[in-house]
Design a protein around this nucleic acid. Structure first.
Lengths: 200, 200, 200, 200
DNA sequence: GATGAATGAGCCTTCATTCAT
DNA sequence: CATGAATGAAGGCTCATTCAT
């Protein structure tokens, strides 16, 4: 079958199951049978269950790094409504491809001491928006923290929740995915386009 | 000891442990010993593990209903910056008391088919902000859905995340809780005070 | 409610449930809720679960004693086909009223060391057929044992099985209860009417 | 150790314990320690407790099928007393090897809805006696049902009870197993040799 | 006579993991 | 690279029973 393909099959199965049932709610057996491999093979390739999660989280980091997009404007710098919306739409489309991992990332971050990975992702996104990597000693600075809090709580989190809850929302309210996306973009426009500058 | 007090003790233990370790990551044994009761007693009072969660979720609903506050303005109707911030601060203080339940609520909502309770809470909050209960046939209307999406993704979710991740954020970035709160309010001011009207 | 009526309600519930699910398969909780009383009340009246079974078995013994019928012929003494069948029919009708207890009696007798009660019933039936109580020292005699083995394995056991499996047989084979009874009587006629004398 | 041998060891332990204590009265722990394996291994091989029983029941069916004996006469066709007795003796010896399974089979059949397996065995035995398999549409026919009722209630059931209660009977009455067998054969001779033809 | 709270042992089952092949 | 057997701890839950009221 080829070792690398097997690894991928396993990771894909874990990705979906962790998102659907939670990490603790998913047994290694379930992953194995969903991936069509034996349980032992998972241990052969990954050593233990937790490393599966780590691999997924690392995958998202390298993915984000791969598509380094220095042209992405900060949320509050979008020139006008239409180009901002188009940009958000694209952003959402990118995140949507990783929605399973984002879901697990959020789920695990809510547990005590489990937010490290989510914070890492937040900082990476910040860096991409700003362009240059932030020197470690500046991370706690008032200015950086102000931006980080803004990006994180009003930007990243709502976006993750959107891709994570998309299906459930549409089924629950009987709306189409496109309608939800449109309304979300409207909301995001109100909160993120032509808003005042950050407090100093 | 009195059955009602026992019930409370169990619920409080479950509330904290579910939030810290997740529902699936928390054993009934752990709840029992944390509450200082026997495992069987939990089953005597609640029947099964899942009903513990349900009770917590219902508690939050009745709590929210109890403090019906018809004077709460919609997020986009706050008159000026200072009174808005004061209002948000109060709101956050209220939610903070229930932060454990909110954390579980969010965590479970991310699982496939687990968002019902979160949606219920969202609708209840909406209703309170609007003043009148929304007739069932209007829930799917364009106007209501627009508001709901806005309230949910840019209002409720960031607020829940704030109270859920507060401790972790401060420990991770070495900031004080007050500083985080101030920055969050600044961010919320930018996104929710004097923002344009909802699209029609 | 009256203590005695309560006792009866409990016994009736136990009688049915033990027969349907087995003694070990029936919880005291199930008996309590089926009888519409609290679990504690069962312990108040009977002390422990096993005594419920004992009471049922004793009930059957006193019942059999109550209707002492000295006129009942030995199985092999029925004068002619028709009167024998009529007699069997009556016998079956009587046993049918106690079919739940007979079912439990048989079920428990199959466990290691659990046949004592069934043997007691067998001896009682023998005694009734013979007329006089058998002196203890004669129980092991060749003549008595010959008759007992005959009565037990070709008489009592098939009869108990008939009333115990009646419903299941009819449902499985789609026949009426009357048809089954008729065929059973035909079979019994062949084996028990005008058969040779016991070996000496 | 080899998976197949393990399976056998487990089945043998279950066979004996189920017969001695009943299915519900036997813990998986008991089976495990009696078989000298871990509890989890039982679940590895059989999935759940009930499947153990199913396997035992299936084993008896395949066993009966294996020794297809087209020469076995119907119970009522034995030519003379001595050859009939010899035949019964052989039959009993065969059943005795499976007495544990037969005991469980009978015990479970008495529970509501639990007789399916026993009926299956009955039909299989009938088929063997008759020689040709019975066409499904004839199973409910008067002629077949008459024979089945006869075979079942006066043949199979007494035989199962004999092998199931043998030990208990002998201990209770202080007789030898040979003596019991002799008396049983005497009884069976009276009921099954030179008896009238089936009613039409 | 009757109740609801409380218990501890045990239930069947699943878990993540290891090992020999 | 891949497997099936095997394990020990823990999982959620039910059990028969006791006790204070």
């Amino acid at each position: 079958m080829g070792g690398e393909e097997t690894r991928q099959r396993i990771l894909e199965a874990a990705e979906r199951l962790f998102a659907e049932q939670g990490f603790d709610g998913t047994g290694v057996d379930a992953i194995a049978s969903s991936a069509g491999v034996t349980k032992s093979l998972i241990y052969h390739h990954f050593g233990n269950k937790h490393r599966l999660l780590t691999c997924l989280f690392e995958k998202i980091l390298t993915e984000l790094n791969r598509l380094k997009r220095p042209d992405i404007p900060l949320l509050d710098e979008s020139p006008d409504s239409e180009s901002a919306k188009a940009h958000f739409r694209e952003e959402i489309a990118l995140m949507d491809k990783q929605r399973y991992v984002f879901t697990s990332l959020l789920m695990e971050s809510l547990k005590a001491g489990g937010a490290e990975h989510l914070f890492q992702v937040a900082e990476l996104v910040m860096t991409q928006h700003v362009g240059d990597p932030i020197p470690a000693e500046e991370v706690r600075s008032e200015r950086y923290q102000g931006r980080l809090v803004f990006e994180f709580f009003t930007g990243l989190i709502p976006l993750i929740m959107l891709v994570a809850l998309r299906h459930q929302w549409c089924r629950h309210y009987g709306t189409s995915e496109e309608a939800l996306l449109r309304r979300f973009l409207d909301a995001f426009e109100r909160t993120h386009v032509n808003v005042g500058p950050a407090a100093e």
